[in-house]
Design a protein around this nucleic acid. Structure first.
Lengths: 205, 205
DNA sequence: CGTATAATGGACATAACGTTGATTAATGAC
DNA sequence: GTCATTAATCAACGTTATGTCCATTATACG
């Protein structure tokens, strides 16, 4: 007997459901449609949906997790050192380029899910992903003397900043290449936003 | 006859509904409860709810907008210069302190609505608020020569970073005072995340 | 006190939900 | 190509939530 994961009927059904999900999220946002709408758009029986997912939110979460998983596999492929935590913490560029390439691959869905009608939980997942896989490691290898800010706050600052730029990129039509975006983020993070903006004024702390 | 906005019955009903909203969002998240749950918790008739709000999302949006409005009024009070766009762009500190004080005032609701089960649209509103009222102005007064990054990306970076630190602050029990938080954000933004983390390495762009 | 109106209680039709069982159709293994 | 397996369909079910309605009661305000 065939594996559940390779049965063409299942693959096809799931693909149609997810395509319909993207369409409907684009049209009306996550709360704007019902399971019935979804199965009609996907052109499958409503009961079939419940054969694979518990509800709308279960579908969404599984779709999200697959994307994160996909990103992780892709990252591991390019950077096998990732498992053994050595090296490469010094070289965030390839990580960032990979990240943007992955996002670009799923651009339509990513834009929706990271948008104002998307899923805030996915933002958390994506920040967590960046933290674990590179941003956290980079920020943590600090000379503790100079670190006058709690590490968790610093990480929150950087991961959220990155997420925000990703969102801005998606919403403005992805004009720049993944590499350009990665370089931009590195520049701001290393030189500092104020310096990039050309603000010289000293702060009177 | 009395004004609709000052009738004690209306005030009371709305207050009970919003208290119940906070409770239920805390317990089950926005999608985890129904209007019936809400009105039972608020101890009012279900029909009464529809006298004031169209549905759950209408309630949420109106609650959000009132908070933003409240913040704006508070900011204007402290900084009347805000209307005429002069001065004070150089002094972001009081703006940030005010912001954190306002968030602290509505801490319970803010934590929920900015959390993983909250409303992503509110994040957009809050970033917009920061952009319009101070962060945008600060970032825009750049010497254009040194600005090698599109201004919109820079603003996205900074506003999102600020939002992320606010979220982290709310989720870790608000250990620091509004003033401490404001200073932390200024430090990171002006010196740069990498510098704060003590990373010296030059980038090979 | 008297008027205005907010809130209640009950009912209604409509729609979505999640599940079930019998049936049909497609798949993969041999 | 046959056959056993199982995915998908179809129709139906009870349950629950939705949004609206109206007659009635209770409260607020002048």
């Amino acid at each position: 007997m065939s594996d559940q994961k390779t049965d063409r009927r299942i693959i096809r059904t799931k693909r149609m459901i997810r395509d319909a999900l993207t369409d409907l999220m684009e049209e009306k946002g996550l709360e704007g449609f019902t399971v019935k709408d979804l199965t009609e758009k996907a052109d499958i029986n409503r009961g079939t949906f419940y054969l694979h997912y518990q509800d709308k939110y279960d579908l969404l979460e599984k779709s999200e997790n697959e994307i994160i998983e996909e990103m992780y596999e892709f990252l591991k492929e390019i950077n096998p050192d990732l498992i053994n935590q050595s090296g490469l913490q010094n070289e965030p560029l390839p990580f960032l380029v990979n990240l943007f390439e992955n996002i670009e691959k799923n651009a339509r869905f990513m834009k929706l899910i990271l948008g104002p009608k998307g899923d805030p939980a996915f933002q958390v997942k994506l920040k967590q992903f960046m933290k674990i896989n590179f941003l956290g490691k980079i920020m943590e290898k600090s000379n503790n003397e100079s670190l006058s800010v709690p590490i968790e706050q610093l990480i929150a600052y950087v991961t959220s900043a990155h997420l925000g730029v990703i969102q801005q990129w998606l919403n403005s039509g992805m004009q720049q290449s993944p590499r350009e975006m990665a370089l931009t983020l590195l520049k701001i993070t290393f030189y500092g936003p104020a310096h990039i903006a050309g603000i010289k004024k000293d702060l009177n702390f």
